[in-house]
């Protein structure tokens, strides 16, 4: 536990010192949401922009948290610091836990920034309760994304090997998770494939909550699925992250 916090502190300290990475991970969602706004402004007035604002913000948090965490952890492997950590006695569960805690701080910041901007730019007037649920779901999604990043990074020997995973995560997330179309209109196999993605469950909640009259009542199990998703990834990652080559 103590060593988990030591790793988390170090990860955070590194994030704070790495201005570019920090800037990118906070500014990038802001800029992209703004471009989205510009794009939606060109649409005919009948187009319902509000349906897309929060889901796109959630998607950005998901993707950036995943990518940053995966890349930084792979950099540890290529630099040899991961090996050095293990030889000094850090356990893999402590390394994973430390990364999770460290990156959660960043993901929380991203969730707040992206949601706030979406709400302000698109002049969404959601009730405080709705906003609270939206924040929780985006945050849980961020946890799952960080875990996904940790898990994927255990399969990459260098930064280059992370890149093939990017389209593998992005493309299905955009098309199969309910971000731009209703997943129930997909063929069965694609619908099932979508169920493997954490964004699908986050979207189930978000779409319901932003629907006029929507309520958490029937959809709260989706939140549990997100939690389970993170736990399963934790278990898998602590098996695939090799302490001994």
């Amino acid at each position: 536990m103590r060593r988990t916090l030591v790793v988390a502190t170090r990860v955070l300290r590194q994030l704070i010192r790495e201005h570019r990475l920090l800037g990118l991970s906070v500014v990038a969602p802001l800029v992209i949401v703004y471009f989205l706004k510009l794009f939606f402004d060109t649409m005919p007035p009948t187009f319902e922009t509000a349906r897309y604002a929060v889901p796109v913000a959630a998607f950005l948090v998901h993707f950036l948290a995943f990518l940053l965490c995966a890349i930084v952890l792979v950099q540890e492997r290529t630099a040899g610091t991961l090996e050095r950590m293990f030889i000094n006695g850090f356990r893999r569960t402590e390394v994973i836990g430390g990364y999770l805690v460290g990156y959660l701080a960043l993901a929380t910041l991203q969730a707040i920034v992206a949601l706030t901007e979406a709400v302000l730019l698109f002049q969404l007037n959601y009730a405080p309760g709705t906003l609270g649920v939206l924040f929780i779901v985006v945050w849980l999604l961020a946890v799952a994304s960080v875990m996904l990043g940790i898990f994927i990074s255990t399969f990459a020997r260098n930064e280059g090997q992370v890149f093939p995973f990017i389209p593998m995560i992005i493309v299905p997330s955009v098309f199969l998770s309910g971000l731009i179309l209703d997943p129930h209109r997909l063929p069965d196999w694609a619908e099932w494939l979508g169920r493997l993605l954490p964004l699908r469950y986050a979207n189930n909640v978000i779409q319901e909550m932003i629907r006029p009259g929507g309520a958490l009542g029937a959809i709260w199990p989706n939140l549990l699925v997100l939690v389970a998703y993170s736990v399963v990834l934790w278990v898998l990652a602590s098996r695939t992250l090799a302490e001994v080559e």
Binding site: R3, V6, R10, R13, Q14, R17, E18, A79, G80, T81, E83, R84, M85, I87, N88, G89, F90
Partner: peptide, 27 residues
């Protein structure tokens, strides 16, 4: 045991003191 790898294996963004303290704190 202590192991000094062939490559530097340090955190470039952190100070020398933070690097030494981090690896030391494992023990």
């Amino acid at each position: 045991i202590g192991y000094m790898p062939q490559s530097a294996a340090l955190y470039g963004d952190l100070s020398a003191r933070d690097n030494v303290r981090f690896f030391g704190s494992a023990h």
